[in-house]
Write a protein that binds this DNA or RNA. Structure first.
Length: 153
DNA sequence: GCCAACGTTGGC
DNA sequence: GCCAACGTTGGC
């Protein structure tokens, strides 16, 4: 399958890009939305490029790039009774929630704000604006390239 | 902190 | 299967 492009959202208070840079890679756990899960389970492949977005931030913005480093596997937090993401309906044989692992690639020299994207030709139609609440969502190759270009100047 | 959007749950 | 109630996300 051709390489695909994605965005992931994280609140900087919870897991900022700087933390991913320190950790090198991280499991994208705790996603409890079926659409986002389906993207991870069915479509995200090792090597796919990922825009890293800070939500609930001032301003909300794309801040850098990551890459899928491990394909879909069960999210362990669903089996952990102590986790706030525990799902009693999930079993190891039939896990409900899947995750991928992403690795740090780069931090933009400047953040590309949501507002700027809205005003930029070629980005007005980003899925982010149509369905803003998905924590994992596809972006087109063209959108990916435009955001990267804005972020590196 | 407010509130709109929207996904999920549960009664019927 | 419908839909109202409820909870969560996330921009502002």
């Amino acid at each position: 399958m051709a390489k695909q492009y994605w965005l992931v959202k994280s609140e900087p208070d919870v897991y900022p890009l700087e933390q991913l840079k320190k950790d090198g890679h991280t499991g994208w756990t705790s996603v409890r939305n079926y659409q986002a899960r389906n993207f991870m389970r069915d479509q995200m492949k090792v090597g796919d490029r990922v825009l890293y977005y800070h939500s609930n931030a001032e301003p909300a913005a794309f801040v850098g790039i990551a890459e899928v480093s491990r394909a879909s596997h069960p999210d362990p937090t669903q089996f952990d009774a102590k986790s706030e993401y525990y799902d009693p309906k999930s079993t190891k044989d039939a896990p409900t929630w899947m995750m991928v692992e992403i690795k740090y690639v780069d931090t933009f020299t400047r953040a590309v704000s949501r507002d700027e994207c809205k005003k930029t030709k070629g980005l007005e139609k980003m899925s982010l604006f149509k369905q803003g609440r998905l924590s994992v969502a596809p972006v087109t190759e063209a959108e990916f390239e435009i955001v990267c270009r804005l972020g590196s100047r």
